[in-house]
């Protein structure tokens, strides 16, 4: 649905995006992940037709962004990093205005506004001036604005930035609820966001593609070992040697008051460990998987340790 091929964007001498290529399949949510100034916003601006690229190709639903910008704009909803709001308008009149410039014909306009108000949960504030509503509602107006013309593709630039934890969860749920019908590309530098909402991820740093693929693919390819971290009431060296005796365990190390236990992928020894803890009355407080999570992956990728 979204295809980027060898995309390059230069601002004068500064290269913001360098030879970037990735693909997002229809109906999926993909995350564009990277530290600040990685080129996420630039990539999104090119995809939505706000900026032209210096070189390369980009297309949305088989429409070339540079040759048929209007066709792309008609089927793409875009939430920029700074939500483009007119503070002196009411939520309702703002959405009405957006509906007009997104070419929704007059007879359907009212329904479109109603629907986007409903999806984004703006009923309570629709008659208020945008300057008087909270940050969370402003972000929702931004999402409503992106959804109003029922686009097949959504491009969301840091949709949860500046929100409180409860609002972040709400917005994430909202984004997840849009899945399936729409193809979504969202950018973020919050790692949890990717694991919780996305099907796949494109990691970029300083304009370069570092890794891309579905979450399972990526984590699997980077992970040779599996493990768990446990926290016990009892401590000491003796416990390390106890744990090491379990068949299949490769490595045990103490990290603070926790123990990290690793084994080769595929040989699950969790049952044995549990048995040991119960038998020896070690007093289990916490046990969590030491999966190579997106965070490790991200840090590894960004620091240049792994390239794909």
């Amino acid at each position: 649905m979204i295809e980027v091929e060898n995309l390059t964007k230069k601002y004068g001498d500064l290269v913001a995006v360098k030879n970037l290529s990735f693909k997002v399949e229809k109906g999926k949510i993909w995350g564009l992940l990277g530290p600040n100034a990685a080129g996420k916003t630039t990539t999104m601006r090119i995809l939505t037709g706000y900026l032209p690229a210096t070189d390369g190709k980009a297309s949305v639903a088989d429409y070339d962004v540079f040759e048929k910008p209007n066709d792309v704009k008609k089927i793409t909803g875009y939430l920029p990093e700074n939500v483009p709001l007119y503070p002196e308008m009411t939520v309702h009149s703002y959405l009405n205005f957006v509906a007009e410039i997104k070419q929704i014909p007059a007879p359907q306009r009212k329904e479109a506004v109603e629907k986007s108000v409903e999806i984004s949960g703006l009923e309570t504030v629709r008659r208020r001036l945008i300057k008087n509503i909270s940050r969370g509602f402003k972000q929702r107006v931004g999402i409503a604005q992106a959804l109003i013309h029922n686009p097949q593709v959504l491009v969301l630039d840091e949709p949860t930035i500046g929100l409180d934890p409860a609002q972040i969860i709400e917005i994430r749920q909202l984004i997840k609820s849009l899945k399936g019908k729409r193809t979504i590309l969202l950018s973020t530098h919050i790692l949890a966001e990717v694991t919780q909402t996305c099907d796949g991820v494109v990691i970029i740093n300083e304009g370069n593609l570092m890794a891309s693929g579905s979450l399972e693919e990526l984590t699997a390819s980077f992970k040779e070992k599996e493990g768990i971290v446990i926290r016990l009431k009892k401590g000491g060296k003796s416990i390390i040697s106890l744990l090491q005796k379990i068949l299949g365990v490769d490595k045990v190390s103490a990290v603070g008051d926790e123990f990290k236990i690793e084994w080769t992928k595929g040989k699950d020894v969790r049952d044995d460990i549990t048995k040991l803890i119960v038998d020896k009355e070690l007093g289990l407080i916490e046990m969590r998987p030491l999966a190579m999570n997106i965070e490790d992956l991200y840090l590894k990728v960004i620091s240049g340790g792994v390239e794909q």
Binding site: G49, K74, Y78, P80, K102
Partner: peptide
């Protein structure tokens, strides 16, 4: 300044 131009220029007008 308000970056609302991003809305205008990404709309099909």
């Amino acid at each position: 300044k308000r970056q609302t131009d991003e809305l205008l220029f990404t709309s099909p007008i």
